Amino acid sequence: MSVLASGSTGNSTYIETEKGSLLIDVGLSCKKIEEALNTLGTSLSNIDAILITHEHSDHIKGLKVTAKRYDIPIFANENTWRQIEKKGIEINPGQKFHFNPLEEKEIVGMDVNSFSVSHDAVDPQFYTFARDDKKISVITDTGYVSDHMKGIIKDSDCFVFESNHDVDMLRMGRYPWVTKQRILSDVGHVSNEDAAHAMRDVITPRTKRIYLSHLSLDNNIKELAKMSVEQVLNQYDIDTKDEIMLCDTDKAAPTKIYTV
């Protein structure tokens, strides 16, 4: 797997098995997604499925062009499809597939489960991917991590986990107060500290890697996110030096391929 890009300006994650490969979201331009995949030694022509989490532009920016150029099956829930259509993004009916919350589908040899999150989109959902006793969970764009969400993602080998903002940077930053309230709300984004407390509840001995994702361009920096998460996890005696690796993600550069 590789996080192709993550942040306020665009999000996309790549996962492959010997049976094929998929993308979670296409929040970059089609050209930039192709360039990112090329650095990994693959291309959009090799992608077997695209899973959409919600309709915000930083998750579907490249959807229209990608769907037009490549005959890739695209999965989203019913409400999200309606919002995508309202944005004027027309998708060939033969490429549209419904994947509603709490459903399970087999895609490229993985058991893929969807689950709802708390975010100000119409019906946002994220996914877990399981195969051969290995599990990857992707969870960003949520105002908080409920016990129900924790139960679904717990015991993963690898997480792509939101660590959106530093609360003090956000409070003192340039955003209008109404925007700050939205981000801090239960339908906004989780802070570094809140993310770490949620991680503490889902990490198990099998967990080896956590990608800190969806960092705010204005209200966070990689070093601060990692330091904040480390401090909280270390308080719970979770070893972030030798047992679990906290990994950066970038708004423009893919992470190196990691084999779970």
Rank of each mutant, 00 (worst) to 15 (best):
I221V: 11
A225R: 02
E193C: 08
T80M: 04
T39G: 00
A5K: 01
G41P: 06
L51S: 06
I152V: 15
P176T: 10
A5D: 05
Q125L: 03
K222A: 14
D48G: 09
V108Q: 03
E193N: 12
H214K: 12
S191A: 11
I24K: 00
K61H: 11
K256M: 11
V190I: 15
F99C: 00
D250H: 15
T53Y: 02
K226W: 01
L246V: 06
K134I: 01
S213M: 07
I139W: 02
K32H: 13
L184M: 15
V187D: 14
T142D: 10
A225P: 00
E193K: 15
H189M: 14
N220C: 12
L4R: 02
V122S: 13
D111Y: 04
A36H: 00
T140P: 00
P124Q: 08
Q83E: 15
L37T: 00
S45G: 10
L40H: 04
A5P: 04
V122R: 04
K87H: 09
S216G: 07
D166G: 08
N113P: 01
D58M: 03
L40V: 09
S57E: 14
I244H: 06
P93R: 07
K86L: 15
S137Q: 05
S228L: 08
I221H: 12
K87F: 10
S43E: 09
T142H: 07
R200Q: 13
S116V: 10
D155Q: 08
M245H: 13
T255E: 08
I24A: 02
N192D: 13
K61A: 12
V108P: 01
N113M: 13
S57R: 11
G94Q: 11
L217W: 06
I74S: 05
Y211S: 07
D218H: 13
E55Q: 14
M172P: 00
D248Q: 08
K134F: 09
L51Q: 02
L4V: 06
G10C: 08
R209N: 10
D194Y: 09
P124E: 09
N113S: 14
P254T: 09
G143D: 10
N79S: 12
T128G: 00
L233D: 03
N220D: 12
S21R: 06
D166N: 15
D132E: 15
G143I: 08
V145K: 00
D25Q: 11
I60F: 03
L215N: 07
G7F: 05
K154Q: 13
T259V: 13
V108N: 11
N234W: 11
P205R: 02
E243M: 12
L23V: 02
F99E: 02
Q231E: 15
G41K: 06
T259Q: 13
I238M: 08
E162H: 10
V202M: 07
M199K: 04
A121D: 14
D237Y: 12
K135V: 09
G10M: 04
D71V: 04
L63C: 07
K180S: 12
S21H: 06
D168Y: 12
I24G: 01
E162D: 14
N79V: 03
